[in-house]
Design a protein around this nucleic acid. Sequence first.
DNA 1: ACCTGAACACCGTTCAAGT
DNA 2: ACCTGAACACCGTTCAAGT
Lengths: 232, 232
Amino acid sequence: MDVHSDIPRSRRERPAKPALTREGIVAAAVELMRAEGMQKVTMRRLAQELDTGPASLYVYVRNTAELHAAILDELLGIIEPVPAEGDWRGRLEKLLTSYTAMLFEHPGLAQSALVARPSGKHYLNLIETLLALLAEGGVPSGQAAWGVDVLLQYATATAAEQATRDLTVNAQDDWDALTRALHGASDRTHPHIATLATELLSGTPQVRLSWGFHLLINGILHTPVPPARSNA
Amino acid sequence: MDVHSDIPRSRRERPAKPALTREGIVAAAVELMRAEGMQKVTMRRLAQELDTGPASLYVYVRNTAELHAAILDELLGIIEPVPAEGDWRGRLEKLLTSYTAMLFEHPGLAQSALVARPSGKHYLNLIETLLALLAEGGVPSGQAAWGVDVLLQYATATAAEQATRDLTVNAQDDWDALTRALHGASDRTHPHIATLATELLSGTPQVRLSWGFHLLINGILHTPVPPARSNA
DNA sequence: ACCTGAACACCGTTCAAGT
DNA sequence: ACCTGAACACCGTTCAAGT
């Protein structure tokens, strides 16, 4: 009955076709993102990659947002571990910079990351490491607990801003418009902008990011959280 | 020839149809957003509202991103002006809270705001006011110039996070998953999370937002910017 | 019971062909 | 010169009907 019995079964199928499981789907999604960018990771395109219809994916993934969250957690698994030596501030900044760099490499993922409420195992590991570093620095635990959110949000939002700017064709136009608007501000109506136009536009993204991390760490150290009110 | 000559011309047209100008398009977009939410403000839907085809809008608006940016600047025009009395920190926080509240009322706009590089007049006014308040507080100008970006980014990102959480049906599920993940963390593998699970999840959005503003203001005050390197 | 083809209800953007 | 109908190339999600 089997007309193909002389051909090994494995040769008759597309060699790289992953099994249709949640793991296989997420793995294929990551592969597709690496190959063609986040904007191509759609349910339809991914289904095509897996030789099936989009409806089939909904058996394993609730929706596009959940798929993106799964990709994010996968990517969190590959950010380089923080070195064991050095002062806690330097190591903290290194970890946050690695996180941001990972999002920079995958424009589009950052925007999902901002909205997604991740809860995967790699995300938990990241939170744990951040808390450990803040504890090592003597940051009071309440401030550390709320601080990790702010640190990750800052890193994520910065990547999302920058990422989309790289992607968009009109990025330069927008930047030019802002530059003109700031430098062209009248010192009668906008005296502070007129005085600070250069400073407002100065600094490379890297230097600004680093300054932001320092600012946040200083702020977290110096800002007590309000006393809990019937919340425990 | 004109069979309608006995009916005033104005009565034969849809009463509220704005002229097809950039201003008219943006005004209609704002109206549509108020009536049906940002997710309905698409080129196609907006064109329909203006009794034309989507292609016509491209004569006045470069793309969807630019349309969203225009809406944002329009909305910035209605945030309540900062009161003249009180200490600068209190007034600064009030202004930032108004800004955030505006974005909260229009879920979806916040996400555009994060990516858009606005340069409209209302945006300039906001920057000017923020710089004035920081100057009043004696913040060194370099720190103030970079600080306004961080303050607005924090406010915008927080609104974007929260806004999407309100919109999404599965928001509660995501939250539950995170709660379970944090409270279920093993104190062998994730000792800090296990200890701080309650603190990590504590605080209303309002209290967290306010704490974040304090932390940022403290950080901006205490963190000098690096010396300019051949950038001026 | 599990899976999915086909449909529903949309998108942004372009460009040839009109007036 | 200015405007736009129609087309191109896509989306996410659902559900009835298959195996």
